[in-house]
């Protein structure tokens, strides 16, 4: 072994140790708990018990997909406008998007409770002008709104970052070859911003599908998401084994989603290249 590779091994050591201690070990523990009972004996029980959670998983995925789609529809034009505006405006817009993230996640969600609740700001205004109050809090809509609000920056930033690097001469070249504004968007800007869109989708979908806090606070615990179920098993039911098996399935789902997204990205590029 030569000197430089020894040194690089030494330099890598802390990171490897960190990864093992805080990433690999917890994951293995999740797997261990998922396949054992309270006495530490191997069992399939926790896995078979999951059949009762089909609706919960379905709801989680559905809400997360909706939230991701809404984020994408909001972010794409915003990122485009940002990337095309002046440098000083770009900084201001970026600041406005980042600003809510300076506040704690819990406080942001509590604020939405105050806005949406039956005696909240919106309903107070509605009633003041003589309309019947609207039920907003504790609805699926409120939960999805919470997801969109909290995770929007994770969609805007990657798309913006790709778009701001897009060379404007490519747009001019497309115009030069006969593209109107719509054709430029369809044939140049969209395909070139796809990597940003895909990482944005991943970064919004993953936290949305596993969230528990948003659904508890804005959904009032009326409908459980996977995250809620996991939290319940660990925090109140003290059934680490079932909690672990739920986590394991969620993890697998996320990995599969990411693989599909990556495959989609690859094949998209491949399709154009071939």
């Amino acid at each position: 072994m030569n000197k430089s590779s020894l040194r690089s091994k030494l330099l890598n050591a802390p990171y490897i140790l960190w990864s093992v201690l805080f990433i690999l070990a917890p994951m293995l523990m999740v797997v261990y708990y998922a396949f054992t009972n309270r006495d530490g004996e191997f069992t399939w029980e926790n896995i078979t018990a999951l059949s009762a959670y089909g609706a919960t998983f379905g709801r989680s995925v559905w809400y997360a997909l909706l939230a991701t789609l809404i984020c994408l529809l909001l972010s794409y034009p915003l990122a485009y406008i940002m990337a095309r505006s002046k440098a000083s405006q770009q900084r201001t817009l970026m600041m406005l998007i980042m600003l809510p993230m300076w506040m704690n996640f819990l406080i942001r969600t509590y604020s939405w409770m105050a806005i949406l609740s039956n005696t909240g700001i919106i309903n107070t205004v509605i009633q003041a002008i003589g309309l019947p109050p609207a039920q907003m809090i504790n609805t699926p809509g409120a939960v999805i709104l919470g997801m969109v609000y909290n995770f929007l920056p994770y969609m805007v930033l990657p798309i913006y970052s790709v778009m701001s690097k897009l060379e404007y001469s490519l747009v001019e070249a497309a115009q030069d070859l006969g593209c109107n504004a719509f054709a430029v968007l369809k044939r140049i800007i969209f395909p070139l911003s796809l990597p940003g869109v895909i990482s944005g989708i991943t970064m919004v979908f993953v936290p949305s599908v596993s969230t528990f806090y948003i659904s508890q606070k804005l959904g009032g615990g009326k409908f459980l998401l996977v995250g809620d179920s996991i939290e319940m098993q660990f925090q109140s039911a003290y059934n680490y084994n079932l909690g672990a098996s739920l986590s394991l399935v969620l993890m697998l789902m996320i990995v599969i989603c990411m693989l599909v997204m990556n495959r989609f990205a690859d094949s998209e590029e491949g399709a154009i290249l071939v």
Binding site: S169, E172, A173, Q175, D176, A183, L192, E269
Partner: peptide, 24 residues
């Protein structure tokens, strides 16, 4: 607008579309 003119440009740094192959 540029897309309706019968002139075409060769740009300083070519501005080839990176997501398309030579044929496309």
């Amino acid at each position: 607008p540029a897309h309706k003119r019968q002139v075409n440009t060769i740009f300083q740094r070519y501005a080839l579309f990176p997501h398309l192959n030579v044929f496309e």
